[in-house]
Simulated scan of single mutants.
Amino acid sequence: MPARPVRLWLIDDHELVAEALAAALARVEDLWVLGRSATDEDDLLARLGRDRPDVVVLDPAGADAADLIPAVRAAVPGAAVVVLTGADDEERAVAAARLGADGWVGKAEPLAEVVDVLRGVGRGEGRFPARHLGAVLRGLREDVRRHRDGGGPLAALSPRERQVLAAMVDGLRGHQIAGELGLSSNTVRTHTHSIYAKLGVHSRLAAVGVARAAGLLPRRQVLPTMS
């Protein structure tokens, strides 16, 4: 009896790219595209929860991976997540792994490579490019070491910086954080830069990835931020 096809859902704000990929994958016998959507569709998470794909393939360019990946994983707990992106950024790959992504593949890769990654992730494998795999493993090992040693990557943060970081994990933007904490936007910006420096990262995505890996989880239901 043949194995059941891997059921896919594509999330991409570039409609022509999503259409072309869906059409190409439709010719692959053991992959089945259940549906596709943009990141800003109001019923995206409800549709994912209803159709329950095996693998969600997403390009967070139109949203923020720090919001989108956890939201997708919460909507479909049993699904794997593959980031299909035009960016070749080692730090973002590490952050995506920390957020729970199972795979990372570039849009410039040949279709055969994309198919191989989707098949592998559908079998429960993790698939990151060899050029980024060392950094991903080092990042995850460092998280484990810090957790084991009891210090953790957040130990160097001041109480106010932890509040700002917690708000970032909640999906709030700079002006929203300022309003919630009663700070000026410039003060929030200063705290944010200090957080990046202390965590050794250069982006909000990476900072949230480190925070979530260290156990700092959202305090409220977080949906993808559409802007």
Rank of each mutant, 00 (worst) to 15 (best):
M1V: 13
P2G: 10
P5W: 11
P5Y: 14
R7M: 05
W9K: 02
L10N: 03
I11S: 00
H14C: 01
V17A: 12
A18P: 01
A20Q: 10
A23F: 06
L25Y: 05
A26E: 15
A26H: 12
V28R: 12
V28N: 07
E29A: 15
D30I: 13
L34F: 09
L44T: 04
A46M: 08
R47G: 05
R50I: 01
D54Q: 13
V56F: 00
P60F: 07
A65S: 14
A66Y: 02
A66Q: 09
D67A: 11
I69Q: 05
P70I: 11
A71F: 11
R73P: 03
P77G: 05
G78K: 03
V83T: 01
E91D: 11
R92C: 02
R92Q: 14
A93Y: 02
A95E: 08
A95Y: 05
A95K: 07
L99N: 09
L99H: 06
G100I: 07
A101N: 07
V105Y: 04
E109M: 10
L111H: 13
A112P: 07
A112K: 14
V114K: 13
D116C: 03
V117E: 04
L118Y: 08
G120N: 07
V121F: 03
G124T: 02
E125D: 14
F128C: 04
P129G: 08
R131L: 13
L133V: 06
G134R: 13
A135Y: 10
L137E: 14
V144P: 00
R145Y: 12
R145G: 06
H147I: 06
G152Y: 07
A155G: 01
A156V: 08
L157D: 01
R160H: 08
R162V: 02
Q163V: 00
Q163M: 05
A166Q: 15
M168S: 00
M168G: 00
V169N: 04
G171L: 03
R173K: 12
G179H: 03
L181H: 06
L183T: 01
S184M: 06
S185N: 09
T187H: 14
T187Q: 13
R189A: 09
H191F: 06
H191C: 02
T192N: 00
H193K: 10
H193M: 07
Y196G: 00
K198T: 04
K198L: 07
L199C: 08
L199A: 08
H202E: 09
R204E: 06
A206D: 02
V208C: 03
R212V: 13
A214H: 12
L216H: 10
L216R: 13
Q221T: 14
V222R: 15
M226V: 15
S227N: 13
S227A: 15
S227L: 14
